[in-house]
Design a protein around this nucleic acid. Structure first.
Lengths: 341, 341
DNA sequence: CTGAAAGCGCTTACAG
DNA sequence: CTGAAAGCGCTTACAG
């Protein structure tokens, strides 16, 4: 491997001058700069990043922890992060927590040991304790949370207003005439599922619809299978339900599959609205009305915040955490339709 | 940040001994080792990876280039790679080429400059020239290709037998009684689409069905929209087609959407088989018969090959490239059904 | 405009 | 069993 030393020897000048020339320092003569540049190109010189990292104490690499890679929303976020990072010359190391608190701690540790310049994280459902996050922040490593966040942790965040979005979804069901509205919610832990539930409840209250807790089903792993399972359950106990707001598209797609199986007509007999706008939602039959969650944009914004924090801390400028709330849209498709008055 | 020096000073011993003690060298007394270990834990010592990298000339980091992150097959591969890498203490930097040759070159360069220990790559459709890959190999950086490969490049590979799999898919259509079988193929470039086309053609020939080139449609971006578009085209020109083998699930799902739109019954009027087994294929209606392509396993295997190459090269042991061909399965679903003789 | 020197924080061959 | 010293390949403050 070619080093600065090789170039210096080749030209009979010092390593110092070569280094400065390559960085276009103005205190090196134009002539020398040109000569060095050409020799470096000729020898196919590539700076040794390991040495650069050690000297500059930066690696131009950030870490990313997501609960699950094979997931349309998260892969969109990853894409947003990677594309934005690239623009600023950063590379991204991706790890997944598999929705496990223990794994999340482990991965965070790996990244801290690796000394990445900053970390982006979306929490696992299993994460209730935030000590590991606090440690990172106290270590002064820039940390930005997105989507699944811990409200009480002080750091920058990028989220959607889940409560408002869920309200919007539920209001849509009410607007088209639904009276008995069920809700499949996520587990007790991630802030998301709490907020979406609260949005659902609030919409009912604001429209003078009695909240009936027996219409709220608490799911665990939020899978396609669970969607089928709870749809079956719902049909068994609550034949009168005319609308359902489901926490996430995958589960909604499972529920619709079960409704289809049992010959229950969507939307005629039951209106279904999901959450997230997975690509899949647009191609199933009936296509799924849902709330669009801008994953790609969330990734971009999250990286931008992180980048800013990295720059500011590096330059020891005062820095304030920021919380960005992205807009969500209602995407109306075939699975909801105004009821005959 | 705590360094070896801090620990050494704390204990009044040399940096050398601390370093060796932490690595459990047997030539350090048990007592000293214990003392050092405890002090390191107490001070929350973390080895500076930048320095370690510089010394050992390894970063325990590999690079991964895929054409597209938001893609069920590739995200499964990523998951397989990341999970396997983790087991061996490696981290993964992911980049995407967006199916562009230029971008692919750039990303490969970024990774080379970063001095990752090895690189995993699935080629962009646009890649026809392999100079960038050869350079990496000549640089002695371990490189493993998977899924979309260049046959003539000498390196380890993990693939499926696309030709055989396509043959299997086409044979299935023939077995259920199809006589006029169309094919939506991918662009001319990636080896995949050539092989799948050849498998299709071979199956026809072996079953004494005349190959009709007008039944083969060459698509470009392999999107849902293109599936709809070419399905429309097919219906316009070839009403007699009773079966179609489509290069990839997403396109097949688009085609089915178009058939549904136009009231063409799948499978009664036309049998459809896809390729890849995206999760989506199982939830659409009718669900899609397809060829399962084991993404997760491919990722795991690809990393294992890369890891082995890294180890062998590091130890300067002789090393032979290996090509692993993974099995594919026919997944029969609703979109194909035996024709009434 | 150029260069000698220190130092980033490790690892390891070598001496004792 | 312990440690002084060299070196990985850069960057940069400082001197001239």
């Amino acid at each position: 491997m070619v080093t600065l030393k090789h170039i210096a020897e080749e030209l009979g000048i010092s390593i110092t001058t070569v280094s400065k020339a390559l960085k276009e320092y103005p205190d090196v003569s134009k002539k020398t700069r040109k000569l060095v540049r050409e020799t470096a190109a000729m020898l196919n010189y590539k700076p040794n990043t390991f040495a650069v990292n050690l000297r500059t104490k930066e690696s131009k690499t950030i870490g990313l922890i997501i609960p699950e890679i094979v997931h349309h929303f998260f892969s969109s976020v990853v894409k947003g992060i990677v594309s934005q990072a690239e623009k600023k010359g950063y590379l991204v190391i991706t790890l997944q927590s598999n929705e496990s608190y223990e794994l999340e701690k482990k991965q965070l540790n790996l990244l801290a040991n690796k000394r990445v310049d900053g970390i982006l994280i979306s929490l696992a459902n299993g994460t209730a304790d935030y000590k590991h996050l606090k440690e990172i922040i106290e270590d002064d490593t820039p940390l930005v949370m997105f989507d699944k966040i811990a409200k009480i942790i002080k750091c920058s965040k990028v989220i959607v207003d889940d409560r408002k979005a869920a309200y919007k979804a539920t209001q849509h069901l009410i607007d088209i005439g639904c009276k008995r509205i069920a809700h499949f919610r996520g587990p007790l832990l991630p802030q998301n599922s709490i907020d979406r539930f609260l949005g659902y409840k609030q919409a009912l209250t604001d429209n003078n619809i009695l909240y009936d807790s027996s219409l709220v089903y608490l799911l665990n792993d939020m899978s396609f299978e669970e969607g089928k399972l709870y749809a079956k359950e719902l049909l068994k106990n609550h034949k009168d339900v005319d609308g359902i707001f489901i926490n996430t598209d995958l589960v909604a797609i499972g529920a619709i599959a079960e409704f289809n199986n049992q010959g229950i007509k969507v939307p005629e007999q039951i209106n279904v609205i999901g959450f997230s706008n997975w690509f899949m939602a647009s191609v199933i039959s009936p296509s799924l009305t849902t709330i669009n969650q801008p994953g790609f944009e969330m990734g971009k914004k999250a990286f931008k915040l992180l980048y800013k924090e990295i720059r500011y801390k590096k330059e020891k400028r005062p820095f304030n955490y920021k919380e960005i709330v992205l807009e969500t849209d209602l995407i109306t498709r075939e699975s909801t339709k105004p009821l005959p008055f």
